[in-house]
Design a protein around this nucleic acid. Structure first.
Lengths: 232, 232
DNA sequence: CAAATCGATTGATAAAAGTCAATCCATCAG
DNA sequence: CTGATGGATTGACTTTTATCAATCGATTTG
């Protein structure tokens, strides 16, 4: 693993405060791999042998049941995924596939659990990370249960706008079919939802979005930090 | 606090392994209160001053937005709630109200965070608890996104049946209007969903449910441990 | 270049779910 | 006992969402 990557991982909240020796020990057992796009990295139901760290690229977490499937989250660098399964030593609840060429570090789950026992700073970081993950899912659940698909899209656009700097014009960061799945609707319905937002000042051109009437859109979307602010 | 309650709390996974002195210290700052039914214990958005432990009764965790509201979970004794907000020192994401007369222990959040820093067994237990909570919410999310309301009801009935011993006849453990909200539908729609399950051998009489054709119902519901088994 | 591919979009239609109003029914207070 | 209350249910209707089929358009590939 190149030094720069090593340092980037070290700087993740999850690892920043742990003792040097423990971090080194964790990394000794780890290995880094490059994956092409559209590779299924893990399948739900499998034992959780590795904690994954996405170094570059992007990963889709999804789940299937009875012939249907849905995207639950998108992982972007640099962050870990499937931490909960790792610490519980329980089967994965979600499958993961690369969306593009991705570089991923794999740390054996048993190493994570061992160091977790030995390093209280690491343990603390894991708690913080898990609490964060938990709260994010709760927010998503509120989004799903309290809002119509049009409202979910409107709020998604506002979040994405903020993430990309806050300007009136910005880009969607993934395929519309995946966005539809993330938002819990069909691609057809997403198309119609975009049209449904035109009256509130939303212009769509491919992956480019222009919010021509910020106030109007916000008035319709009614964003709420307890649903839409994923940082707290 | 009576000795029996004290011991019951001590035996919770969250507290079972921690040092005696730390548990005592936690409990010294705690106080126990009895609440009547239908009292709003906490409101979403408020700072999380206390970790709550439900000793008896039951509590509904819910959330509201734009005039709508939804039940996210039901807490039953003996367990804690809003652990994530406590450890993150962040605002509550859900409101809580008693469903019946309830007895609740309140532990100041700062005490929890302090002892968490000092007691690694406690820290470990918190990690396990949070990971468990996280996985439960993910399961609920899969339930919501992958299943129709009829399928959600069918699987809920199978889970409730198992919880109450596995017999063909069992009782719903809460109001249908709340069940509807938990399952993400309206009370009217729940009524119709019960009717929709009749062809699969489900008989409803008030809160009593009789599964007359287990095989048929399971064939329709297609329960899956990665969605329906909340113990793993 | 031409054919093939794949995602996005559109229209027509069907299914699912919500809304509103009325009624039923069990429970409870006077 | 009787009226009042509130949840549950039902029917009629609307809205939302999904499904199916066709088309469009950009991109890739032989």
């Amino acid at each position: 693993m190149p030094d720069s990557e090593y340092r980037d991982i070290r700087m993740l909240n999850l690892f920043a405060q742990m003792a040097d020796e423990n971090f080194i020990s964790l990394m000794r057992g780890a290995y880094v791999q490059n994956f092409p796009a559209q590779i299924e990295l893990i399948s739900e139901g499998e034992p959780s042998d590795f904690l994954h760290i996405l170094i570059s690229g992007s990963v889709d977490l999804f789940s299937a049941w009875n012939g249907r499937d849905t995207s639950l989250a998108t992982v972007r660098p640099i962050s870990t995924f499937i931490l909960a399964a790792t610490v519980k030593d329980a089967p994965y609840l979600m499958s993961a596939r690369t969306l593009e060429k991705s570089r991923i570090a794999l740390i054996p789950s048993q190493d994570v659990r061992a160091i977790f026992d030995a390093d209280s700073n690491f343990a603390r970081a894991i708690v913080t990370e898990l609490a964060q993950c938990y709260r994010s899912v709760i927010k998503t659940q509120k989004d799903l249960k309290l809002r119509t698909s049009l409202e979910r899209l409107a709020n998604y656009l506002l979040r994405q706008q903020k993430r990309s700097g806050g300007g009136a014009s910005f880009e969607l960061d993934f395929e519309k079919r995946r966005l539809a799945s993330v938002l819990g609707m069909t691609p057809e319905n997403l198309s119609r939802a975009f049209k449904g937002l035109q009256p509130y000042g939303v212009t769509v051109n491919g992956t480019n979005i222009i919010v021509t009437d910020q106030i109007d859109l916000e008035h319709f979307a009614k964003p709420n930090p307890l649903i839409d602010d994923f940082s707290s």
